[in-house]
Design a protein around this nucleic acid. Structure first.
Length: 928
RNA sequence: GCAGGGGUAGCCAAGUGGUCAAAGGCGCAGGACUUAAGAUCCUGUGAGUGAAGGCUCUUCGAGGGUUCGAAUCCCUUCCCCUGCACCA
């Protein structure tokens, strides 16, 4: 049967038997596992596949371990992109039309995509189809999507934000964005011609004053160096602006004036002044009260900050070289002692690097960076720095800024970290957006509680904890609403729409409610604040029937189901969400829910590469889910994606692996169907039964730690190797043994490759579904170390014979195997018990027995050999009689293999040199 | 810049103090099967050396250190990837 047919067969049976529909059940423990709902502006692709499959494997594994797993899947439509697509289609944008065509949408349907609702519905269907064909164990009664297009979900978000606002966790404020004054809008990363990676930097503009008490602001990132300013830099060719700000007059460059307009300074232009004119003025340092001259410099860029620069030649290479260029005299003021930099480090470095003039930008940049870095990390402020003397730069920088601002000596000026040019070719600057709504993640109590809860959570792998913890610690207030895009309006300020990360924090709870919406028991009108307070928060509400319009039986049923399945037991995500969604997820649960309803565990994984490279359409390694399903089938696709990597490292999905898995699956099914059996229990059977226990152990342990690849190593590769090994050694398999092996194989691989495992399950004569079967338990009675050792012995002997034959290059006529002298067994046994102790101690212990004394020299040799290389010591020392019988058993096989006579000889009764060399578990070999 | 992760054989990747010249996979070479190809199975795969199952040297980004012993622990240094927010 081909893969497609097989998949269809089982999808239908699963569906007909409703096996993935989770209902509360007193006998089992509820287990809620979730994958972050994907944004549905595109079809599912390999990037989603990996994380999704991890989640799915764990869901199926937990189910088999006896948990009542609730695994459903919602979809995310909130935000700008879907709206963007619809707008571009409405405008008949060519590249957008092409993109849709490429993803398989026929020309005649294109126009429908100008309606965002159509886009949502289209991709909902496409995702559901792909996920179904992938064989996922999803309870589809519980699926939903976001935005006000779905009124029930909309009510849920409305309730959440009202509640958070009442708690004081949604507040009004302003925040800086990169802004294009020409387009009059925020300029996102993808809307920039240049400066994609620019970040927002806070400059400290220090308010120097001239004799007329006008302010000449110099912006700096190093306010601590204000103690060492010896002059100011002005660009003589630039025309500066005089602006009234409050009751002060400021002199800045023209672009700075524009920035200040957008940063709430409310400047009013009152005049202009040439740079050249300014040079005549003197200004006073507000901190040191020193009067300083203004000097000309071309490196002063009017676009950058205020267009006026303070000069600290001792710690800023640019300032020193510029002073040197104009042959100015100055008195250096050394401020920061840094190990390895010496006095006046900028002067020293410029001289050491032989920088000639201020046009050697490359060298100067390098020097500046070096000094900044070292002084920041290791610098100590000295006696020239007033009350900050004795502090490390890194420790007091922030304090200095705050102090200066508080005392009115300085203000914050926001600036881009690098030049940003908008698509419209205009230069961008930073704007402070007013009256924005924020989630107050900076709230100390909220943050503290969140960190506290995080410390109780299980995080897989542990490395991800650092990342999460740092994200939570560094979390600032987050703007939670935008003016455009799809979503739920802020209930109290409807022109704002709750943005996409902010409406995705506690929605896992909605999987439980959605079932009742799907069944029609609950309608939009029932889902009011009282409903959510009662069901989700467990508040006592009188007259709940009246208030929600639901019968007590129904609403209590919902509450019971919520209490049964919540909290989220496991959230599986790629690592990109560690810095925003996952912290938000914890924050909001902590704010809203009582401790027992907060998330239990998070598992994070790396990104996906395809064939070793980042997936991209231009590289030709972009795989949609559809491609993969059609080409490799669901099982092989799933296996290939799980056989990549685990932990936070990026997974590399290799298409060839998928092909190989596909082939292997066929082989396995064929083998299982055509197996010829008998009844017998020889060492071969006992061995297989025994090693299977190891794989059960290994796989279970790995899956408990969410290590997909390690698990697959056991469930698939190692298991199959051992089964093949067993079959190779025998013409007829023992029926009971081989059935057991395939039974375990089917069960253990069912989470990874459910379709073919169901098929295998049926071939083995089972009814029902392997998906519902129990995860195999270790059978202690099957563990047989001696038999395993026996097989090992066989392999070793075979290996040694091969090695010798290769070297001597003769055709063997007779192979003699000498079983070690009896006394050596005792010696080995004794050494084993002493292993790990000091060499001399082992030696003296060994020499206590008479038997050992008799062979003193040899015993010493053996001890030395084993201490040096403990691998020479077998795991178990089997008795000599057993070794003989094992060798006798294998002699027939050796005979066939090498077409030679095989004889087993006891070394005690031989004088052959090879007989003397024989060790326990390592027979002497003589080939003639 | 800050934060997180990483650098292991031709490639991917396991390994966090001794059983490590280093699992597994891919690739490559040889063999079996086949009319042939493919698939499958077996053998080999750091270098050197040995007509007996070994022995020697070199190797885990680089450089130091700790240790009887280091891919693994400590220090210094170089390089790569990811995130830094209003954007899903």
């Amino acid at each position: 049967m081909n893969a497609k047919k097989l998949e269809e067969k089982w999808i239908k049976r699963w569906h007909d038997n409703k096996i993935f529909e989770a209902e509360p059940d007193k006998k089992r423990k509820g287990h809620l596992i979730t994958f972050p709902y994907p944004y549905i502006n595109c079809a599912m692709h390999a990037g989603h596949l990996y994380t999704f499959t991890r989640c799915e494997v764990i869901a199926r594994y937990k189910r088999m371990k006896g948990y009542n797993v609730l695994f459903s899947q919602g979809f995310h439509a909130t935000g700008e992109p879907i709206m963007g697509v619809s707008k571009r289609i409405a405008k008949k944008d060519k590249s957008q039309i092409e993109a849709l065509k490429k993803s398989g949408i026929p020309e005649k349907d294109l126009q429908k995509f100008s309606n965002p609702e159509h886009i949502v519905n289209y991709f909902l269907k496409s995702w559901r189809k792909d996920l179904t064909e992938l064989g996922t164990a999803i309870d589809w009664r519980r699926t939903f999507y976001t935005t006000k297009l779905n009124p029930c979900y909309n009510n849920f978000i409305t309730w959440q934000y009202k509640t958070l606002k009442n708690m004081g966790l949604v507040v009004k404020g302003s925040h800086p964005v990169v802004y294009c004054p020409d387009c009059e809008s925020a300029t996102g990363e993808h809307e920039r011609l240049r400066g994609e990676n620019a970040t927002i930097v806070e400059y400290i503009a220090i308010k120097f004053r001239n004799k007329n008490n006008e302010i000449i602001p110099a912006a700096t990132l190093r306010p601590e160096t204000v103690y060492g300013v010896v002059n100011m830099w002005i660009n003589p060719d630039v025309e500066y602006v005089k602006a009234k700000i409050g009751n002060e007059v400021w002199i800045t460059s023209e672009p700075c004036f524009e920035k200040m307009k957008d940063q709430n300074f409310n400047p009013e232009k009152v005049g202009k002044i040439k740079g050249k004119e300014l040079l005549k003025e003197k200004v006073q340092n507000p901190i040191t009260k020193e009067w300083l001259s203004m000097h000309p410099a071309d490196f002063v860029n009017p676009e950058n900050a205020t267009g006026i620069v303070m000069s600290v030649p001792t710690h800023a290479p640019y300032d020193y070289i510029a002073l040197k260029d104009i042959h100015a005299n100055f008195k250096p003021i050394h401020l920061i002692d840094t190990p390895g930099l010496g006095k006046n480090p900028a002067i020293k470095l410029v001289e050491d690097m032989k920088i000639q003039n201020q046009h050697e930008h490359e060298k100067l940049e390098k020097a500046t960076k070096q000094i900044y870095k070292m002084e920041f990390h290791k610098g100590l402020l000295n006696e020239n720095c007033g009350k900050y003397k004795g502090l490390m730069v890194k420790d007091c920088k922030e304090r200095i800024s705050k102090d200066f601002i508080k005392e009115g000596y300085a203000v914050i000026l926001h600036e881009c970290s690098e030049e940003v040019i908008c698509r419209c070719t205009k230069c961008c600057h930073i704007k402070l957006i007013q009256n924005q709504w924020f989630l107050k993640y900076s709230d100390e109590k909220w943050k503290r509680e969140t960190l506290k809860h995080l410390s109780k959570m299980k995080i897989y792998p542990e490395e991800a904890r650092n990342w999460l913890e740092n994200s939570v610690k560094g979390m600032k207030d987050k703007a939670c609403a935008r003016k455009s895009g799809l979503g739920t309006p802020l209930p109290w300020d409807k022109e704002w729409i709750i943005e996409s990360l902010s409406d995705s924090t506690i929605y896992m709870a909605f999987y439980i409610i959605q079932k009742f919406v799907t069944s029609g028991k609950v309608k939009e009108r029932n889902l009011n604040a009282d409903f959510f307070d009662y069901v989700l928060l467990g508040k006592k509400i009188t007259n709940i029937e009246k208030k929600t319009g639901l019968k007590k039986g129904i609403i209590d049923g919902i509450k019971k189901e919520f209490d049964y399945f919540y909290p989220v037991d496991m959230r599986v995500s790629a690592k990109d969400l560690l810095s925003h969604h996952l912290p938000f997820f914890i924050f909001h649960h902590v704010a809203l829910f009582k401790p027992s309803k907060r998330p239990v565990a998070i598992s994070a994984n790396g990104y996906v590469k395809v064939d070793g490279a980042k997936m991209s359409k231009s590289l030709g390694n972009f795989i949609t889910m559809r491609d993969a399903l059609d080409k490799y089938g669901a099982d092989a696709t799933r296996l290939a994606s799980m056989d990549t990597s685990e932990g936070l490292m990026d997974a590399d999905l290799r298409r060839e692996n998928a092909v190989n898995f596909k082939r292997k699956i066929d082989i396995i099914l064929e083998t299982a169907k055509n197996i010829k059996t008998t009844n017998r229990k020889s060492a071969n059977e006992l061995w297989l039964l025994s090693v299977i226990q190891q794989h059960i152990h290994g796989a279970s342990k790995a899956l408990d730690e969410l290590k997909n690849r390690t698990a697959l190593q056991h469930t698939f590769h190692a298991m199959w190797n051992d089964i093949s090994e067993y079959l190779k050694r025998t013409d007829l398999a023992d029926k009971e043994t081989i059935n057991y092996a395939f039974d375990v194989f089917a069960r253990m691989n069912a989470p990874f490759a459910p379709f073919f495992c169901e098929e295998l399950w049926e071939i083995l004569g089972n009814n029902g579904f392997v998906s519902n079967a129990e995860w195999p338990k270790i059978k202690r009675s099957f563990i047989n170390k001696e038999v395993e050792e026996g097989v090992e012995l066989f392999k070793n002997v075979e290996n040694d014979i091969n090695g010798i034959l290769k070297l001597v290059k003769t055709k063997p006529k007779k192979i003699t195997l000498f079983v070690s002298q009896t006394w050596r067994y005792d010696v080995f046994g004794k050494i084993k018990s002493l292993l790990g102790k000091d060499f001399r101690m082992i030696m003296s212990e060994m020499m206590k027995s008479n038997e050992a004394k008799k062979h003193g020299k040899e015993v010493a040799g053996i001890v030395e050999m084993i201490v040096k290389n403990p691998s020479r010591m077998p795991d178990i020392i089997i008795p000599k009689s057993r070794e003989i019988s094992l060798l006798n058993e294998m002699s027939l096989m050796l005979k066939e293999k090498y077409h030679a006579d095989v004889e087993i000889v006891d070394a005690d009764s031989s004088k052959d040199i090879k007989a003397m060399k024989a060790m326990p578990f390592k027979p002497g070999i003589l080939i003639e």
